[in-house]
């Protein structure tokens, strides 16, 4: 289950009033970009590699540990 893909954050949009519920990022997957919620990764920032599933970033990816 769970097609998740790792990509890199290229920009971050803070939510209304700084509420993490609405914080989102544009994430680059090798040339294709998707808007992704950062609600579950409140400290993720530009340049971080994140694992994304159904439009939600779920984990920071340690690139040294081997980006797929």
């Amino acid at each position: 289950m769970c097609l998740a893909t790792a990509g890199v954050i290229v920009s971050v949009a803070e939510g209304d009033g700084g509420d993490p519920l609405w914080r989102s990022a544009e994430v680059d997957f090798g040339g294709v970009r998707q808007r992704v919620s950062l609600a579950c990764l409140p400290t993720a920032s530009v340049g971080d590699a994140v694992l994304v599933h159904v439009g939600l970033a779920l984990a920071l990816v340690d690139a040294a540990g081997g980006l797929p």
Partner: peptide
């Protein structure tokens, strides 16, 4: 295959 093509396919399954 370009990375953007494999990337799009990975995202959409």
């Amino acid at each position: 295959l370009l990375p953007a093509v494999t990337g799009t396919c990975a995202l959409l399954g």
